[in-house]
Design a protein around this nucleic acid. Sequence first.
DNA 1: AGTTAAACCTGGTTGC
DNA 2: TGCAACCAGGTTTAAC
Length: 276
Amino acid sequence: MPELPEVEVTRQGIDEPLRGARVTSVRLGKPLRWPLGCRPDRLLGTEVGPVLRRGKYLWLPLSRGGQPAGGLLMHLGMSGSLALHGTAGEPGPHDHFDLVTDRGTLRLTDPRRFGAVVYAPGMDQPPADRLLARLGAEPFDTGFTAQALHQALRGRRAPIKAVLLAGDVVVGAGNIYACEALHQAGIHPSTPSHRLSARRAAALLEALRATLARALVLGGSTLRDFSDVHGASGAFQAEAAVYGRAGQPCPRCARPVRRLVQSGRSTYYCAGCQRR
DNA sequence: AGTTAAACCTGGTTGC
DNA sequence: TGCAACCAGGTTTAAC
């Protein structure tokens, strides 16, 4: 489910309400991608600080008596979402983590359980550092320039779609936004990354930023089950030009959108306006 | 070294 | 209607 816009929408939804909240209990459901990595008791009495996002990860810093007390690295996987409940009801079959605080319960719902909640002493400490180490640049980092993107792509022979998805050059784009950004930039998804000109790399970065920013404004995409912390759906999917639209006309040139499979994932594109 | 399958798990949709 | 096959927003790990 969640790509950068959905994760950022989630971050914005929990940051303020949870700021300064005190953890009163923790409930674990079925196992997620990785174990929590500490006894749940260890979190009791800690206070939640400003929520950060790095790529598609969220970091909830914790403190105890004003002193840093580690934090929780959270990932929503493919089907996860976080909700904030004033009073949380009985957990459903897909509710696998509750952080109960004096300001409400943060609940992770994740049917496929590819998501994770992992304790670490710091973002730069194991196991968080290992998970964050391979992440590429933040797409909205002003220090990440078109030149930097072009330079990074020069060393990659894989198709540009695969490189975007890998997230080790630039983070944030998942299957939806990678397809949409490539369409907007007029770049064929199979284009070998190192063959992109500086000009086209610049167009790609601009398209990626525009696509992610637009999705952010619309509250993300809701394909089947994503919702923000208040339960509201995103609206971007209605504006998708190619994603999930195989056979339907391209909004720009009216040629039918095609679907192909790249490294096991569906890619949607328009052969008319996306060139190698 | 870089790139591509396989794996994780559940549920919805499609087709026979 | 029943059931098998396929598909789904991600990322790590193992295998070419």
